[in-house]
Amino acid sequence: MEMDGLLTYGVFFLTQAGIYAVLALGLNVQYGLTGQINIGIAGFFAVGAYTSAIVTTHPSTAHLGGFNLPFPVGVVAAMATSALVAAAIGRITMRLRSDYLAIATIGIAEIIRLALKNEDWLTNGVRGIPGIPRPFSETLGANPLISLGVVLGFVAFAFWMVERARSAPWGRVLRAIRENEDGVSAAGKDVAHFRLQAFVFGASLMGMAGALYAHFIGFISPEAFLPLYGTFLVWVMLIAGGAGNNWGALVGALAIWVLWSATQFMTDALGAEYATQAGALRVLLIGVLLQVILIARPQGLLPERGARKH
């Protein structure tokens, strides 16, 4: 029985770590390879989650759809929608300096959050969307192990795509832009265009992670997207693991997720009456950890190969 509980927790734990790994890989395309700061990760994540939910749930009068389509269609739609949102906003913001882009992404995430809460016809507002099917549950059953397998499969797929992109000439151009933008544009390359591609690619992975999350949890509402904490955790994961290095993104996601979960055990020991304080304490610890990493080991656990040192 206890073994069973542990196993269930282990599966749950790894599934969530896998979803974060996809997010960290998406951010690695944007920040690690290209040097773009996205503080609106939660927004693209939510767009993906809602899109897949609307595409795959049974028809409902409470929100748009559902269209009762299979899970893979939901994931593809999630990626496409996130990419579209990123492309729309990116067309305007890609020529901006990185700090202005960072501020703009806060705005994007905020607007997405407000829209999810208030556009009832689309999202059923604060009541959320229930009954999102588990991946392949109709054919394979609702075993959590199946979900874990699916998530890990997507992690591998995302990793493969990002790693290929990184080592391709395209990835080299991105890194060249990050290091010396003027040089690249002097060489006749359209810097904004490359940036936009990276931003959209990264956002589509974030949308993919959102879809995985929706199907894994089965119910989503605006409340479920603790918008900032999610974004923040992903950032700490990538910085800790090593921005620019895809293995670093994976290792960082796992390491920080272990830490984050471990602090939950610690704070649970404080008892229910201190639940909110305990939650805040956990976030504070991660916030302090980020500072320590930035000061003591800015290159992360697995530094990017051949990168200049800060």
């Binding site: 700090d99 900032l228 976030v283 302090v288 500072q291």
Partner: peptide
């Protein structure tokens, strides 16, 4: 520094 200040905001 921007990322660091984001962390400070959360903290």
């Amino acid at each position: 520094l921007l990322i660091s200040s984001f962390g400070i905001a959360i903290a």
